[in-house]
């Protein structure tokens, strides 16, 4: 049995997809999600092998969801009503996708490929990154709940006891990624690593203060001061347009 999660914000679309999938005895629908946050929660909780993922959704869209997934993600089949650019990218990279309204034979073909396990997950991730542009939101945990934080609210990201936290002006939220993953993920959105255990949002940097022996300090929007390691100082100054 293939444990499958249905993700679509429209109830009617989920209904018709459920009906279409009923013909396939090896597909087990383990859950449904109506928005990006719910999708991430269900993926973490139910660990499905396959996610049928609508692209146009509130909260996080399909591409953004893929980017927030942790290592060893499920197989993804994208669903869209009309996104000619995405479809071109899918075609070019042999990524599975379905067009709404879904035709049974197309569904069958996509499921066949999932069964054979031939999906190139890196291609899915690459296309998602390309299609969604710089990330604008980040999925994080507040206790057990998953919340979506706009990146412009995140002042910095730090490591504490091997856990990674995104800090806003008012709270610290757990992010289930490594700091290295976040560094590459958030670089296009204007985040820079300033030390081994810390990223800052360049938007929130207010002052650069020279410190001891070639190190610097940054003063952030919430008046916190953080150390910048010597080898990162140059990148930071470059990124801020100094030198």
């Amino acid at each position: 049995m293939i444990r499958t999660l249905l993700v679509d914000d429209e109830e009617l679309a989920r209904t018709s997809m459920r009906r279409a999938l009923a013909d396939f005895t090896d597909i087990e629908i383990v859950g449904e999600a109506a928005d990006g946050v719910e999708a991430l929660e269900k993926i973490a909780e139910l660990k499905p092998a396959l996610v049928l993922l609508d692209i146009e959704m509130p909260g996080l869209n399909g591409f953004e969801i893929v980017q927030q997934l942790q290592s060893d993600p499920p197989a993804i089949v994208f669903i869209t009503a009309y996104d000619e650019y995405a479809v071109r990218a899918f075609e070019a990279n042999a990524i599975d996708y379905l067009l709404k309204p879904v035709r049974q034979e197309r569904l069958e073909r996509a499921l066949d490929r999932v069964r054979r396990g031939t999906q190139r997950k890196t291609a899915v991730a690459d296309i998602s990154k390309e299609r969604s542009g710089p990330l604008r939101r980040l999925a994080a945990r507040r206790g057990k709940r998953i919340v979506i934080v706009p990146l412009r609210d995140v002042i910095r990201v730090e490591i504490e006891d091997k856990l990674v936290f995104a800090c806003t002006a008012t709270e610290r939220l757990l992010v289930e990624k490594t700091i290295g993953e976040l560094e590459t993920m958030l670089a296009p959105s204007g985040f820079l690593r300033i030390s081994r255990g810390e990223l800052v949002n360049l938007e929130s940097v207010r002052e650069l203060i020279p410190w001891f022996s070639g190190t610097w300090r940054v003063k952030l929007a919430n008046n916190e001061e953080r150390d910048v390691s010597r080898d990162r100082a140059r990148q930071l100054k470059e990124a801020m347009g100094i030198e």
Binding site: E10, L12, A13, T15, A81, Y82, L99, K100, P101
Partner: peptide, 18 residues
Amino acid sequence: NPHFFFNTLNTISALIDD
């Protein structure tokens, strides 16, 4: 917008049975 057209077809397709 063509988006609207395809979404509507999808809506109708889902409604047809129930």
